[in-house]
Amino acid sequence: MTLFEKKLIEYIPNLRRYAAALASNSHCHADDLVQDTLERALIKNSLWVRNSNLRAWLFTIMHNLFINQVNKANLYALESIDDHQESHISAEDPTQDYFVAQLKQQLECLPMRQKEVMLLISLEGFSYEEVAKILDIPVGTVMSRLHRSREKLRQSLFRENISPLRQVK
């Protein structure tokens, strides 16, 4: 196995986590997105500059593939929750469970562009500059999208008089 392949395997858990979060309300399957990303990375292997940021490069590929798929089918307008996603919610603490369920639902309601920014920062801990490069947008846009998405979640999760949740079918 080459060094490149070894490094690729190292980042599979990161890619899977991001894909699961990203694709949770679209019809594309998270692991298919990961698979496509890995295949594309192997084909474009020569385009990766040695010792440059491989993780950011992989997320760039995944972002482009995801956008293509979304554009192709305009998938993200559709709402559906994968069965297996539900199983990640632990049933041990009912209040925690409720909060997490709410969070999940609110995340799915976020516009895809805001969600991407927030997930790259929250889950992957990328810097604002890295996110700007991955998504090919100015740093200022990263910051405004980040604020908008976080504030939206905060408003819906922590408002004092929370209106009843919309039921998910």
């Binding site: 858990p13 899977r16 699961a20 692991d31 890995l38 997490v100 999940k104 927030m118 929250s122």
Partner: peptide, 23 residues
């Protein structure tokens, strides 16, 4: 909470077909 929500996916055993792709 977002971290907690998706940590299980991160901790899962990597599916064989994805490993095979890289190998």
């Amino acid at each position: 909470s977002i971290d907690g929500l998706y940590q299980p996916v991160f901790d899962e055993k990597i599916p064989a077909h994805l490993l095979n792709t890289c190998e």
